[in-house]
Amino acid sequence: MLAVQIKAKEEILPLVSSKRIFIFECLGCHDVYYPVEEAQKLIDSIDQEIVGRATLDYLCHADYDREYIKAYAREIERAEVILVFSCGVGAQVVSSLLDDRKVYTCCDTLYLAGFQGLTAKEFDCDQCGECYLNYTGGLCPVALCSKNLLNGPCGGSQGGKCEVDPDMPCVWQEIFDRLAGLGQLETMDRLGPPKKWNVSPA
């Protein structure tokens, strides 16, 4: 987890209304910056049943996550929504491991010059300050779409490849497939408003 800011409860509560919740919380970059109290405040504002909570270091490390997912298998099974408190990398890793589950992040990852986390390899987070993962099935269009598109694939997406670089997958095709699998394709219809680039790196 890098430096994060907790999302407003107005953004999170509609995602969890009347659903059982499991929480993943990452303290791996605790020393960098993690607003413990605000995170707890958001959790306290959720009325729904919290069926389990796993707190670990380095949620961005898929091997650790697999262990925890095994250890909490029953609770995770019971939960309808998984909430993640971590940086964008951690949230992406959890989404990828639980790709048939609704996984939402409660954090916006902030820019920290020169600091890229410890285990970020397969998953990229630009630390953009305004996390989109809750609208994209946990795949990041900001770091991975060549044109930073926020409203779905461009007209050049073909055969799952990015038009800009055929060696790269089109992340919007992956987002579409993930949301289709979750039965949440209507999320693609949302008009994504202009992004606040001032909260992200120069």
């Binding site: 779905g152 694939p153 050049g156 089109c170 095709q173 579409f176 219809d189």
Partner: peptide, 17 residues
């Protein structure tokens, strides 16, 4: 709008957007 790009199933919803 490009009716021939992928995913084809998103091309009408994209027009709607």
């Amino acid at each position: 709008e490009n009716p021939f790009a992928d995913p084809f199933e998103f091309r009408v919803p994209r027009l709607a957007k």
